[in-house]
Simulated assay, not measured.
Amino acid sequence: MNIVILGSGNIASHMGKALHTLGHQILQVYSRNWANAHVLASVLNADAVDTVEEITDRADFYFIAVADQAIQQVADQLPQPVNGIVVHCSGATDINILARFPLHGVIYPAQSLRKDIATSLRDIPFGIEGSDRDIANSLLRLIQTISVKPFLCDTKQRLALHLAAVFANNFSNVLFQIAYEILKEQNLTFDLLKPIILETAQKVQKQIPEDVQTGPAKRGDTETIQKHLQFLMKNPHWLKIYQELTGEITRKEH
């Protein structure tokens, strides 16, 4: 397949490299910053372009892999007509943002990707949405060459997956950072928590998170909770987070 990558960031890099490795021809990499486009294009044996007017209309697929807030602008500037399928790679952006193109869809990798970290896409779930059944199936077949976990979904399901990923990944990571800072203030290393973090992650691979919940809120240990609240009095932001999460756990118990 002949492919154009619009973007040069995290998803653009991973998708471009995966498709290139499989033998697909990456015709062009577009970025408003030519140097960024050139770095990725040189890896993919593609041409680097920094204006939408240079984008070919002869590709089979156009991957808009840019920040969510830039998808609309890139889509609006992409010349018409293009013969291929235009897709974006966002979890939270409606498919209808691409409605001006007769053939359009979405390919959303449910994973936190960084272009400077090598990551296999094989076991990453990909939410696939198409403007019609044929387009969806075409995108599904393409991604099945990259991952063993692509699935068809609609926009609301994709948004739900993205939101759930924010809770599971982004929010848990900021809680890790709070834990790191609490320990650092007491001259303790974050390494002390790595075994329990790993154990929790391993548990939820096979069980529902609610079924493996532990801690003072779960067992109704108000005395320990009060000690924690007292400890956190000097940081009202952390105190509020603790209270909200404790309330969520105890609510599940009633």
Rank of each mutant, 00 (worst) to 15 (best):
M1L: 08
N2V: 03
L6G: 05
L6M: 03
S8Y: 00
S8V: 01
G9P: 08
I11W: 04
A18L: 05
L19R: 00
H20M: 06
T21Y: 05
L22Q: 13
L22V: 06
L22Y: 04
G23D: 02
H24V: 00
I26M: 00
L27A: 04
N36G: 04
N36A: 09
L40K: 03
S42F: 03
L44S: 01
D47Y: 05
A48G: 04
D50Y: 12
E53D: 14
E53F: 12
F61S: 00
I64A: 09
A65I: 01
V66R: 00
Q69N: 15
Q69S: 13
A70H: 14
I71M: 13
Q72A: 15
D76G: 05
Q77H: 10
L78A: 06
Q80C: 06
P81W: 05
S90D: 07
A92F: 12
N96P: 11
I97Q: 12
L98W: 08
F101R: 06
L103T: 07
H104I: 06
I128V: 15
G130C: 02
S131M: 02
D132K: 12
R133H: 14
D134F: 13
I135L: 09
I135C: 08
N137R: 14
N137Y: 12
R141H: 14
I143Q: 06
Q144Y: 03
Q144A: 02
T145W: 01
T145Q: 14
I146N: 01
K149C: 09
F151Q: 11
C153F: 05
C153H: 02
D154K: 10
D154W: 08
D154F: 04
T155Y: 09
K156S: 15
R158K: 14
A160W: 07
L161I: 10
L161A: 07
H162K: 03
L163A: 14
A164T: 14
A165F: 11
F167R: 02
F167W: 13
A168L: 13
N170K: 11
F171H: 09
S172A: 15
N173Q: 11
Q177N: 14
I178Q: 12
T189P: 12
L193D: 01
K194G: 00
P195W: 09
I196W: 05
I197A: 05
I197M: 11
I197N: 04
K203Q: 15
K206S: 15
I208S: 15
I208L: 14
Q213H: 12
Q213L: 12
T214Q: 06
A217G: 09
K218Y: 09
G220D: 09
E223C: 10
T224L: 12
T224Y: 06
Q226F: 08
H228W: 07
H228D: 01
Q230H: 12
L232G: 10
M233P: 02
N235L: 07
W238Y: 15
L239C: 06
K240T: 14
I241K: 01
Y242R: 10
E244T: 15
L245S: 10
T246Q: 12
G247D: 11
T250D: 04
R251Y: 12
